[in-house]
Design a protein around this nucleic acid. Structure first.
Length: 274
DNA sequence: AGGCAGGTTCTTA
DNA sequence: TAAGAACCTGCC
């Protein structure tokens, strides 16, 4: 089907924004995997996009996945060029990034894996995990098989050695524990959706291998709570160098997470010495 | 060849 | 409570 998107929307920037690890350039478009769903999307002319899904699939899933009901342009408009010139530059640079509505389970495992890894390494680990424990759900244009993200049960069924074979390193134990807890039902990620922000954070921090940074990524990308503001090495560097008197969290609430994405994308593109 | 990559846990004081 | 070390692995 074909759709028109008038708001900020840049597939390349989203793919490279570090929030998703199974969203890749493929041929003349992008291949997007979320849990057990796959989409091929490509840009046509101007604001037109071609999606290889039904109108029903789009309305029921992908529209929400891309967060198309929220105007990122309006949110960007809150940034004052004079009062916050650094964020303004970052937002101009990152214009087109959106916060995808991803699955809490997939995000939890993905961000547990992410610690002290660079993005290519994270992607490689997740791909191995999907090939090993996911289901074949189709193939891309080149005939390469596509796999779903493993269910908690499937992942919980793997041995520590099998997990380790996915280049998880010392994180293998974290993934195993999380998978077993979720599979057993002692951790109910879906029920966590109902929790208030503070309690959600508390529950997530109870998980082995989940600290404040990973928990914030889970809250922002897995639970789509757009005010969460994950602080990683890049963001900390930005805050130190450009916000010695503090970032204006009050001004941008409840969308600080979107601002975080602009800052992250901008600083990372500039390299370590901004 | 040693350091470091989107951190967290464990140990020590 | 707070700093410092240790941790897998792969890639400069």
């Amino acid at each position: 089907m074909k759709i028109r998107i008038e708001d900020d929307f840049d597939l390349g920037k989203i793919a490279d924004s570090g929030q998703c690890f199974r969203f890749n350039e493929s041929g003349d478009g992008y291949s997007v995997l979320s849990l057990d769903k796959h989409l091929f999307i490509k840009k046509l002319e101007a604001d037109e996009y071609e999606l290889d899904c039904s109108k029903d699939d789009f309305e029921r899933f992908w529209k929400g996945y891309f967060d198309l009901d929220l105007s990122y342009r309006d949110i960007r408009g809150r940034i004052d060029k004079e009062k916050d010139s650094y964020l303004y530059s970052a937002s101009e640079f990152g214009k087109g990034i959106r916060i995808l509505r991803q699955d809490p389970w997939e995000m939890l495992i993905s961000f547990i894996i992410s610690q002290r890894k660079n993005i290519p390494a994270i992607k490689a680990s997740i791909e191995k995990l999907c090939e090993r424990a996911g289901e074949a759900i189709g193939e891309d244009e080149n005939g390469k098989l596509l796999y779903s993200f493993p269910t908690p049960e499937k992942l919980a069924g793997l041995s520590l050695d099998e997990l380790s074979a996915c280049s998880l390193g010392y994180r293998d134990k974290y993934v195993m524990k999380a998978a077993r807890d979720v599979a057993a039902g002692s951790v109910d990620l879906m029920a966590y959706k109902e929790l208030g922000d503070d309690e959600l954070m508390e529950r997530l921090l109870e998980l082995f291998g989940v600290g404040v940074k990973v928990a914030n990524c889970e809250i922002l990308f897995g639970y789509h709570r757009l005010d969460a503001f994950p602080r990683d090495v890049w963001i900390n560097r930005v805050l130190e160098m450009h916000y010695p008197q503090g970032f204006m969290f009050d001004r941008y609430a409840p969308y600080n997470g979107i601002m975080q994405q602009y800052l992250f994308f901008y600083s990372r593109s500039l390299g370590s010495n901004m």
